[in-house]
Write a protein that binds this DNA or RNA. Structure first.
Lengths: 123, 123
DNA sequence: AGCGAAACTGGCCGGGTGGCCAGTCCTCCC
DNA sequence: GGGAGGACTGGCCACCCGGCCAGTTTCGCT
């Protein structure tokens, strides 16, 4: 017991592409100071596929629309949003309306789903 | 021009903990066949902190509830869900009700948000 | 047989939602 | 100085949503 001040970092590979996953397992399996997680083992970190949502491809949402969107994602009703933002329910509806437009959604539930998919918001 | 059939895997480290990130950068930086992404560069894969949602911790949802939940996440109205599942709107409401219960949600938007967060559904 | 869970259906109703119309203030820009 | 866009507000209204009550059938387990 001496230089084990830092135990191996346990890494789990969570990549769908079997080819890439294999290459990584190969490369990382023989790195000193690092270990691949056994099945079921809790890892310190995971290697995941490049998240597709990272490229913004931003839909142009105004700040206010983002405010409303965030609260919608919390399950807040128009009334709650109005109170939280100190604006009238009508104004909330106004923003929700343009949100549905811009996100090409049919309702508020669809809107937050689309927004989450496109990375506009984080659930 | 011979064994470059497989260019280096570009890896980006996206970990908040600076200590862990540093150790990983150190260990991974010197692995042949693998390269750390330059800032802004698009990586093949990312090293991320253990995603909390990976552990199932499944809420016990019945098959029918999962059916309804999936359609809710598509932004479908109760009427649409009813048509798609060949059941009455009342039955849909019944399932939505227990979904709200089990997912501890205040409305359908909140329900799909919670479900997505817990990994019950994939957006 | 008896019992519970799941799925299904109905009526009723208050409140929420989204679409339409209208309008007023800003500020930035040509 | 006139336009364009954003934020904001109002009324009106059809429809949807979620919660309440009630009931049926079918299944598996004991």
């Amino acid at each position: 017991m001496s230089e084990d001040t830092t135990p191996d970092i346990v890494l789990s590979i969570e990549i769908d592409d079997p080819v890439l996953a294999d290459r990584l397992a190969m490369l990382l399996g023989s790195v000193a100071g690092l270990r691949l997680a056994a099945s079921g083992e809790t890892a310190n970190a995971s290697v995941v596929a490049r998240d597709p949502r990272v490229m913004p491809e931003d839909i142009a949402l105004t700040q206010r629309e983002l405010d409303v969107l965030a609260l919608m994602a919390e399950g807040a009703s128009n009334k709650m949003i109005a109170r939280r933002l100190n604006i009238s329910v009508h104004t909330v509806k106004f923003h929700v309306g343009s949100l549905l437009d811009k996100l090409d959604a049919t309702g508020r539930t669809d809107a937050v789903a689309h927004a989450a998919r496109r990375g506009v918001i984080e659930l």
